[in-house]
Design a protein around this nucleic acid. Sequence first.
RNA 1: GCCGCCAUCGUCUAGGGGCCUAGGACAUCGCCCUUUCAAGGCGAAAACACGGGUUCGAAUCCCGUUGGCGGUACCA
Length: 499
Amino acid sequence: MAETQTGPVRVRIAPSPTGPIHIGNIHTALFNWLFARKQGGTFILRFEDTDQERSDRKWEELIYKEMRWLGLDWDEGPDVGGPYGPYRQSERLELYQKYAQELIDRGYAYYCYCTPEELEAERKAAEKAGQAYKYSRRCLHLTEAEKAQAEAKLREQGRRPVIRFRVPEGQILAWDDLIRGRIETASDTISDFVIMRGNGIPLYNFAVVVDDITMKITHVIRGEGHISNTPMQLLVYQALGAEVPAIGHIGHILGTDGKKLSKRNGDAYVGDYRDRGFLPEALFNFLALLGWTPPDGQEIQSRDNIIRTFDLERVGKSPAIFDLQKLEWMNGVYIRMLSREELLARCLPYLQQAGLVEENPSPEKREWIGRVVALEQERIRTLAEIVPATEYFFKTEITYDPKAVQKVLKPECRPHLEAALSLLEGITETNWTTETLEKLLDGYVNEHGLKRIEVFQPIRVAVTGRTASPPLFDTLAVLGPEKVRERMRYALEHLVPAA
RNA sequence: GCCGCCAUCGUCUAGGGGCCUAGGACAUCGCCCUUUCAAGGCGAAAACACGGGUUCGAAUCCCGUUGGCGGUACCA
């Protein structure tokens, strides 16, 4: 395998700007990017926007945004330019036309005047006969006169002929796949495929090859779905007399049902993960581990380390199911590694969007929010979880979990709550710290020979509305005397049944 | 139908003929820590799809079967 590649590595990712970028595409982009960065090569972004109906500049912008968010930067592309532009297929139309004409002139391609109806009929007939469909080639053998007549007829319908590639017979089309080894296909199984539409827009299998040749792509790394396209592309390289780049196909990423990832079986788009509070560094790490194993086997890998050790040799060939639970775990690990200031900065947008925090909090308020989120740092797995986890710090009126109230705020806790309240009322604002609080309440517990949980749990429920929270004294300390006392009074008045 | 790709614990995977009584991670379960929840520590359960070969020896090589996926477009 591995044709001796001389010169710098040039790889590309070529999404169609027809929607948000799919996780599978970003995974492929990541592997290309890693390969380029590891090899000191060039990573190119190109848009395959020949589907004029669905392509839109707004999707291009979104693709830029998602790629940047994940930290995948490109060296050449529609926005930054480069020596082999333009980087949008819609701006390269003359190029494809030129190459198509060349193929016709040299007998590698021919005009086809068949209508969709005629082709459909051929297809149906083949199916009925239990045969694999292949185009009949009736347009290949037309005389000049017949061609003129056919074209005239087509024009009447406002149509123009398409250009088909003439697939040679009896050839074995083969390449040494970078990650699967040798793959062969008989050219006889391939039908003469259309390379240009009547309107002058190229088709995928032709356009990619022209682009890859002219952009001097050295390595094509793409999803396994393209394996069956490769033989046709090989034919185009051959006809154009161009050198075939190294080609490798990585496995797809699947949803939990083993099907292509979609809204039905998980989130399919990069933006979904950002919105749900996944950190780009976590998603990057996780995605890298889908299909690739670091040599040291460690799961948590820094970006630099991944680049340094990335190797196509360690990329597997089977498809991988996207395991959200593992991503969540990994995201939790990354959240715990954040500094307090970073954590705050990352959580703030979620709190603001939820209406818990104002647009521009004062420095003092910011500092306080920092203390709030720090309490949840080792408890949340995604940034979005910070909202439900810390709600009660921000709201004036909190929601009490009925089950918690019923289970914990029983008549027998009343005396403890009352005693605790009066103790807390004796603390001055400046003395309201974790240490003081702990000393005071622990003192009460010991004095009366109680178990800590008997006193602490009722306070927790009274003050947070729930049975689970960060350590009680930290929670009380951050909550502040006012909210704590008020909620305890409220609980005593409305929630704890009389003894 | 035809062509092609893939196949190790539930999931991601290590493994490239003897080092495998098949290793790690997530998830699960148990124990410890503990004011709750987490985090952390320790431990358990859990896989080579099946059938033939090749070989002294196969998870590893070959063939077949089964299953999954992809293609079979004037989509990309």
